[in-house]
């Protein structure tokens, strides 16, 4: 579903992503771990077609993102890190706009909106202005737009960031549930999230993949059955 081959991104002289390759199969949830500045968001932005890679190949649902960007983009749902929204719109208006942009019309659109409102627990705020929502609701509204066209591939950049523990639990549950049928790539800082929701995890550091395996295999590798120990061993610590 997602095939990334020899992907590299340079910003001037700085290599943000360095020749990484991985795949995410259908029905697989891949956790993308790494310290701040490791290249997680840059990789995700390349896979979603927002920024072009310096070199390498990305295939989503069999379509090359560089050759057939619109076809590839139409099977991706993306939740950016900052969960951006149009503050002056209502939740319904925003979701309706996103559905239109994804080519949904009429009854199909209405159904899709109702479904994501239910999935993301937005019933209470459907006609509320986005600028009046709490951070948790705003985050879930942005997650809803990623799901609106029922995409085969989901790219979620820190989907639980800024949520309270109950909301985190719900989102993890949702990721697990969606992961049964879709390919999901999600990034996080929270190591327990990987064990709670992922089939497989990769750890990236300074633009390179430094570990790749199931959460169990990674824990074994750590020596003391802790992902945190492994994470600290393989990633660079930057103390300001």
């Amino acid at each position: 579903m997602i095939e990334v081959t020899h992907l590299t991104k340079e910003f001037g002289h700085k290599k943000a992503v360095n020749n990484i390759s991985f795949t995410v199969e259908k029905g697989e949830v891949l956790g993308f771990l790494g310290p701040n500045g490791a290249g997680k968001s840059t990789t995700m932005r390349m896979i979603t077609g927002f920024i072009p890679p310096s070199s390498g190949e990305i295939k989503v649902c069999g379509y090359s993102l560089l050759e057939e960007p619109e076809k590839a983009k139409s099977c991706i749902g993306y939740l950016p890190e900052s969960a951006p929204l149009y503050p002056e719109m209502t939740v319904y208006g925003f979701l309706s706009f996103c559905a239109n942009m994804r080519g949904l019309r009429g009854g199909q659109k209405k159904q899709a909106i109702e479904k994501v409102i239910e999935t993301c627990f937005l019933q209470k705020v459907v006609y509320q202005g986005i600028d009046t929502l709490s951070k948790g609701y705003q985050h879930r509204t942005c997650l809803a737009q990623a799901l609106i066209h029922d995409p085969e591939v989901l790219i979620l950049d820190e989907p639980t960031d800024g949520l309270d523990p109950n909301q985190k639990h719900e989102v993890r549950k949702l990721i697990r549930q969606l992961g049964e049928e879709k390919s999901i790539l999600f990034s996080t800082h929270i190591l327990e999230e990987v064990e709670a929701a992922c089939h497989r995890a990769v750890i990236v550091d300074l633009g390179d993949i430094v570990e790749d395996g199931t959460p169990e295999a990674l824990r074994e590798k750590s020596g003391d059955d802790s992902l945190q120990t492994l994470f600290r061993k393989v990633t660079t610590t930057e103390v300001a």
Binding site: R45, T48, G49, F50, P69, E70, K71, K73, S74, I76, Y78, P80, S82, P84, L85, Y86, P87, C98, M101, R102, G103, Q145
Partner: peptide, 11 residues
Amino acid sequence: TGTIELLGTMP
């Protein structure tokens, strides 16, 4: 607002 990222990743 970062919405450029939403628009840029739509088909």
